[in-house]
Computed example of a mutant assay.
Amino acid sequence: MAYCPKCGIKVEGDNRPCPLCNFHIPKVNEAKVAVERKFPKAANPYPAHLRRVLNRIFVFVTLLVFVAVSLMFYIDYELNQDFTWSRYSNISILAGWGILYFSFGYVQNYYKVIIGIGLISLVLLFGLDIFSGSLDWFVPLAFPIVVGTSAIGISYWSLIRALSVRGFNVIGFFFIAVVILSMWINFFINRYQHETDLLNWLIVTALQLLPVALIMIYVKFAMPERIKQKIARKFHL
């Protein structure tokens, strides 16, 4: 509906003479499109920039690894007409490159990282032992230690996620995992040296876990809340 700007009466349309005063009514656009004001999206360019820098560094390191491995194989073969010392050096370099791949964040899943690093460690230790002509220490020592370490790491992370553990409990469970891992390694070292006493090992493990468990119980039930909050703010727990 339009109005005559001269006499003010309502008219049916626009861009036509007013029926009362014959004034030419200008065209008025009644369907105004609402203009939506859009704020710019807040984006942090730092993660993308850091990812590009890490990619370049990793590519550069990969090229260095390829050159180093090729050069050592070439020098070893030229000097000895066979691959001798270069096998040990190169498998260690390749294992380090594999661990670096996980360290650069190309794999985000914690379980895959633990399993991947565990497999790389097994391949490295197997290669170092088999190059010596036998598997004297890989099967009784290296294999159970690496597998046990990986299993404890996966169990620790699964427990933290399943129980939604936060704050002091994370530290407590971490120390428990470290004690169990230390005793696990100690058990297979003693077994490799034929000095294993299972009962004694269980008693020592329990005695090492007892202080950590007592500290966790004290923090949970006896420590004043004021001190808890102060420590939590201090260490960002």
Rank of each mutant, 00 (worst) to 15 (best):
F102D: 11
G105R: 11
G105A: 13
G105C: 11
Y106D: 03
V107Q: 11
V107S: 11
Q108H: 12
Y111M: 12
I117T: 09
G118I: 02
L119I: 07
L119G: 10
L119M: 11
L122K: 00
V123L: 14
L125T: 15
L125W: 02
F126M: 13
F126S: 08
G127Q: 03
L128C: 09
D129H: 02
G133R: 11
L135Q: 01
D136P: 00
W137G: 00
V139L: 13
P140Y: 02
I145V: 09
I145G: 10
V146L: 08
T149E: 00
T149N: 08
S150P: 00
Y156C: 03
W157M: 05
W157F: 00
L159T: 06
L159S: 05
I160L: 10
A162W: 02
G167M: 06
G167A: 10
F168A: 13
F173P: 06
F174W: 01
V179C: 01
V179T: 07
V179F: 03
M183Q: 12
I185N: 02
N190L: 12
R191A: 14
Y192H: 04
E195Y: 00
T196F: 06
D197T: 10
L199M: 15
L199Y: 14
L202R: 09
L202K: 04
L202Q: 13
I203M: 09
L207D: 01
L207Y: 10
V212C: 07
A213Y: 11
I215S: 06
M216S: 15
I217C: 02
Y218E: 03
F221A: 07
F221M: 06
P224I: 13
I227F: 10
I227T: 15
I227V: 13
I231L: 15
R233D: 15
K234T: 09
